[in-house]
Simulated assay, not measured.
Amino acid sequence: MAEVRDPVMSTADPSIPRLPAGASNLQALLATVVETLLSVFRGLAFWATIPLPLVIAGTLATNVVATRPLLVGSLVVLNVVCAALGHSHSPSV
């Protein structure tokens, strides 16, 4: 008799190739490295958001904006980008 498989209940699909165990470990290591780098990047962006307004205020107080408006505008854009990227960072206590 022919074997009848229920397609709804079956979880094993022989047509999907399995990765060797070494490749799976490599993928896990790569995922961990990428996650760590993203966490560090978010943390740097989060903490850079704190002093940047003080730097911008210093450039405004010392009239740097009159001589280098592009620099001050770039600092403002950098502050906004850092705030957006560092928003999801949660500093550990």
Rank of each mutant, 00 (worst) to 15 (best):
L30A: 11
A57T: 00
S15G: 08
A31L: 02
P7D: 05
L70S: 13
L19Q: 10
R68F: 12
M1E: 14
T59M: 02
R18Y: 07
P53T: 00
P51W: 03
V81G: 04
L54R: 11
E35F: 10
M9N: 14
D6E: 09
P53G: 06
L37I: 10
P14V: 00
G86M: 04
V72N: 05
P17N: 13
V8L: 15
R5C: 08
N63P: 07
V64L: 01
V64P: 03
V81W: 00
L85P: 01
A66H: 14
I16Q: 06
L60V: 07
D13C: 03
S74M: 09
A28E: 12
R42T: 10
S24V: 15
A45Q: 00
W47L: 09
L19E: 12
R18Q: 12
L30I: 11
S88I: 12
R5K: 07
R68H: 14
S10K: 03
L19C: 10
R68Q: 13
M1Q: 14
A31T: 01
V8R: 12
T36N: 05
T36V: 05
L85T: 06
C82V: 08
L52Y: 00
S10M: 06
A12P: 12
L19V: 13
P17T: 09
A61V: 04
G86N: 08
V80Q: 02
P7S: 07
V33T: 05
A83Q: 01
A84L: 09
L26W: 13
G22A: 14
G73F: 00
S88Q: 13
L30D: 13
A31E: 04
A2T: 11
T62P: 05
G86S: 09
R5W: 05
D6F: 02
P14A: 05
V81Y: 03
A23Y: 10
A31P: 00
P51M: 02
V72W: 02
F46D: 07
T11G: 06
S74Q: 13
P69R: 08
P53D: 02
R18K: 12
P53R: 00
T49H: 03
V64Y: 05
P69G: 08
P91T: 01
L60D: 07
S24W: 14
A21C: 11
V77W: 01
H87Q: 14
R68D: 14
L37Y: 09
R18H: 07
H87K: 14
I50G: 00
L29Y: 03
V72M: 05
